[in-house]
Design a protein around this nucleic acid. Structure first.
Length: 589
RNA sequence: GGUCCCGUAGCUCAACCGGAUAGAGCAACUGCCUUCUAAGCAGUAGGUUGUAGGUUCGAGUCCUACCGGGAUCGCCA
């Protein structure tokens, strides 16, 4: 069903149209001045400019039309021509109660259209660190929001497993263990068991990376190893397979803890076999040309205000780069899914890279013209000093360390609140886990994806104020309240509205009518912070209502029933909304 | 140097297509646990939205210049 705001806009649009004005002027929004009205329409002032009439006069005409609408309670014209609108309480209730229906009253705007989200992007052989958080958290939330809105959205982790970092690690191992069978070309059978563990990799990659950074020859060696890996040298491939398997296990564990899930576990390497034919085709179409020893695709246009460098398909040493694999990945996605939209949730510094890839994909018709390719760049995670985040030791904090710290703080908080005794160990850990993940995720999700933000450990693991745990807390309070009501057999079973509502009840009810546009707002703006903000305000409204309106002791039966309904609606939205954000709600905390 | 992003309360962030008195949280200060979970509630204080112009009935939002910060500009991802 359409939202209250949509229906108000429709009605007001009709009023403008009846007066011979553009119906677009009838856009209604939640009022900036809740002290004056619930909703407002600013169209009269814009209309005045176009029609050359007095805005208040137009507003007055619109108001006369609107008076006919059955759900309008009060209309006022204020200031230069604001139309202030108040809606009857039973109308608010009618819309809010939709949140107890199956899809919480959210329209199916996706109609099953296929959307692929490319996010995550962890690197094989590299420990996952807090820099991987934003892509995972934002990508997962967007995917879920799209699914909730009726799209068929799937996530592809797109592992970084085919680039120079693989050559760095392989050459490092070759330097350290030249006697290993993987480096003997006469050997074709290799051990099943991986010679390296995850712990080894955590030490080897930084060492290899550092060595290549200071020594050009060492880097050249890594590049050579990369080419040979990509060209299929058996020992390298066998070693590579070990590293992928060892890494994926850890990667899966990390994402599982974050409640982030991928439908596709593809990597750069999984499109390797598509590359040669793809490049052959590009050559035949005269799109791929040789330049400075490399094979490139020019993607600049005359209309460009900046210089767009060509997409490099093959480096001069014969290795492919991530542009090549990204292009081949689009080829593969078209082959299997024919998506309506492919969305990348990646660090915004890769903006230019994806501009190149998108242009190459469209120019070569690898991706059809109608397919929407979207780049959602998120901002850098900086330290409190404003520079890209580093720990005191100069490294980046490992993801599992962050999760551990947050988890321990949650346990500590439970101890302080003196509630650990109420749960067994498994329950205690489950609650601490959910609370800690909610804290970490919500700290990110409340920000606009595009903005850089400061990684502040204390803030991320804080449970008070505008935090994930605050939202959980409201849902949990409702749980125990409704449980109690159930025991006392006074559950909400009727839909009557009390004659008089107190301000906390009206505020909450009014807020509850806006779940739909805020959820769809995540899809429209490609930003989960819209919903995060809505849920936070919902929690605030509820908490205020909870403190000021006692329920179990309320003697008026209609009022008590109504308040229980408010609780149910709030909980339904909170649980569904947090689920979209990828945050699980514990039963108790 | 070219291109792009950002600058909002002491700190961290919001502000939907240009709308009314720019909102939250943290930190600070006042109250409130003998009633449904105080991870809470009620309140106080904190602002020339980087600067200077311009467009407009109306600008944090659009335009211009400047100041300050960041990103990026062919073989890393």
């Amino acid at each position: 069903m359409t939202s209250l705001l949509d229906d108000l806009t429709e009605t007001t649009g009709n009023a403008f149209e009846t007066l011979g004005l553009n119906r677009m002027l009838g856009a209604v929004r939640v009022s900036d001045r809740p002290d004056l009205a619930q909703f407002q329409c600013n169209g009269a002032m814009a209309a005045a400019k176009q029609a050359g009439k007095n805005p208040r006069e137009i507003a007055s005409d619109v108001v006369s039309e609107l008076q006919k609408s059955p759900f309008i309670d009060k209309l006022e014209i204020a200031g230069p021509g604001f139309i202030n609108i108040n809606v009857k309480a039973d109308t608010l209730y009618k819309y809010a109660i939709e949140s107890l229906s199956d899809n919480l009253g959210i329209d199916n705007i996706g109609q099953g259209a296929k959307v692929i989200f490319d996010y995550g992007g962890p690197n094989v052989a590299k420990a996952m660190h807090v820099g991987h958080l934003r892509s995972a958290i934002i990508g997962e939330a967007l995917k879920r929001a799209y699914n909730f809105a009726g799209y068929d959205a799937i996530g592809d982790i797109h592992l970084g497993d085919w680039g120079t970092q693989m050559g760095m690690v392989i050459s490092e191992l070759e330097n350290r263990h030249p006697d290993w069978p993987y480096f003997d070309d006469s050997i074709t059978e290799f051990p099943q068991e991986s010679p390296i563990t995850l712990r080894d990799l955590e030490e080897i990659y930084p060492a290899a990376s550092a060595a290549c950074k200071q020594d050009e020859q060492r880097l050249e060696q890594a590049r050579q190893a990369t080419v040979e890996l990509q060209n299929g040298r058996p020992g390298y491939r066998a070693l590579w397979k070990h590293m992928v398997e060892v890494s994926i296990e850890a990667i899966k564990a990390n994402y599982a803890r974050l409640n982030v899930h991928f439908e596709l576990w593809n990597g750069e390497a999984s499109v390797h076999n598509l590359i040669a034919p793809m490049v052959q085709d590009l050559k035949e179409k005269k799109l791929a040309v040789t330049s400075d020893g490399a094979l490139v695709m020019h993607v600049s246009k005359d209309s460009d205000s900046k210089e767009i460098p060509p997409l490099i398909l093959y480096k001069k040493d014969g290795a492919v780069m991530y542009g090549t694999t990204d292009l081949a990945t689009l080829l593969e996605r078209e082959k299997y899914f024919q998506p309506e939209k492919v969305t990348y949730v990646v660090d915004k510094r890769q903006n230019l890279h994806f501009e190149q890839v998108f242009r190459a994909a469209k120019a070569s018709k690898i991706t059809p013209e109608k397919t929407d390719l979207t780049f959602i760049g998120y901002g850098t995670m900086n330290g409190t000093d404003g520079k890209p985040f580093k720990t005191r030791e100069g490294g980046v904090m490992k993801l599992e360390d962050l999760i551990k710290i947050s988890h321990e703080k949650a346990l500590q908080k439970m101890n302080e609140a003196n509630i650990t005794g109420k749960f067994d160990e498994a329950q205690t850990n489950d609650i601490a886990h959910k609370v800690s993940i909610a804290a970490v995720k919500f700290a990110d999700l409340q920000n606009h994806p595009n903005s850089d933000y400061v990684f502040d450990l204390d803030r991320m693991t804080s449970f008070e104020g505008k935090t994930g745990p605050y939202l959980l807390y409201q849902a949990v309070r409702i749980n125990s309240l409704l449980e109690k009501a159930d025991q006392d057999d006074i559950t909400a079973h009727q839909d009557n509205l009390p004659e008089h509502l107190v301000s906390q009840e009206i505020d909450l009810l009014l807020h509850l009518t806006q779940f739909s546009e805020n959820t769809l707002g995540v899809v429209k703006n490609n930003s989960p912070h819209v919903l995060s903000d809505y849920l936070y305000k919902l929690a605030q409204n509820f908490s205020s209502f909870y403190s000021n309106c006692h329920i179990m002791s309320e003697e008026n039966d209609v009022t008590r029933q109504f308040r229980l309904k408010l609780c149910q609606m709030t909980r339904a939205q909170m649980v569904a909304g947090l689920n979209i954000l990828g945050i699980d709600v514990p039963e108790k905390m």
